[in-house]
């Protein structure tokens, strides 16, 4: 039963506490080397800034938020978090490959909702997270995890709010998941 075997293997994730220790050591090493923590939303911002600058440079320069990150000698894609994020894709690919989880594109959703509903809410969640990560000056990685580990008040508050609000509203969106 080869398919059965592959199915079993694809369900295997590492122990969460082991994953946590590895992630914590990586975060510690990152701070020790670079003086800053890990991040993910920074690369999204760089991508949007670069895209808008390429398509409508005059608009980008005029807009206060973009021009914060645009200058002649400093390209927004030439940024630490962009290289780190390219690494995230590569690392996830290796892990997925070894575990046999890389398959053709599919939609993961609760049996109670359609794939279409899932995609709509996934997009909507992304928009909320995109806007939220700009207000938060970082997302779960940069603000909540790295921020809390480095004792930043903003990081600790982001951690409490993100999960706190999540638990508060979870009941109203339970159909999406259970």
């Amino acid at each position: 039963m080869q398919t059965k075997d592959m199915e079993e293997r694809s369900k295997q994730f590492i122990n969460p506490y082991l994953g946590g220790v590895m992630l914590g050591l990586l975060l510690l090493l990152t701070i020790y080397i670079t003086g800053r923590g890990l991040g993910a939303s920074g690369a999204v911002k760089s991508t949007v800034v670069t895209a808008v600058d390429k398509i409508a440079p005059a608009y980008a320069e005029k807009q206060a938020y973009y021009s914060k990150f645009l200058s002649d000698d400093h390209h927004p894609m030439n940024n630490w978090l962009v290289f780190e994020t390219i690494g995230i894709f590569a690392g996830a690919f290796l892990s997925g490959l070894f575990a046999g989880r890389i398959k053709k594109f599919r939609v993961e959703h609760s049996p109670n909702i359609t794939a279409r509903t899932r995609l709509i809410f996934a997009s909507l969640g992304g928009v909320f997270f995109g806007v939220g990560s700009q207000f938060g000056r970082g997302c779960s990685s940069g603000a909540a995890m790295s921020g809390t580990a480095t004792f930043a008040l903003a990081g600790f508050l982001t951690l409490l709010l993100m999960f706190g609000v999540g638990y508060l509203i979870a009941y109203f969106f339970r159909k999406l998941w259970i």
Binding site: V131, S133, S140
Partner: peptide
């Protein structure tokens, strides 16, 4: 504001950026 919006993003989307 950011924390609240990200809480919504988490529950609606099931992912965070990374």
């Amino acid at each position: 504001v950011g924390g609240v919006l990200m809480g919504f993003g988490f529950v609606l989307g099931g992912y965070c950026p990374g």
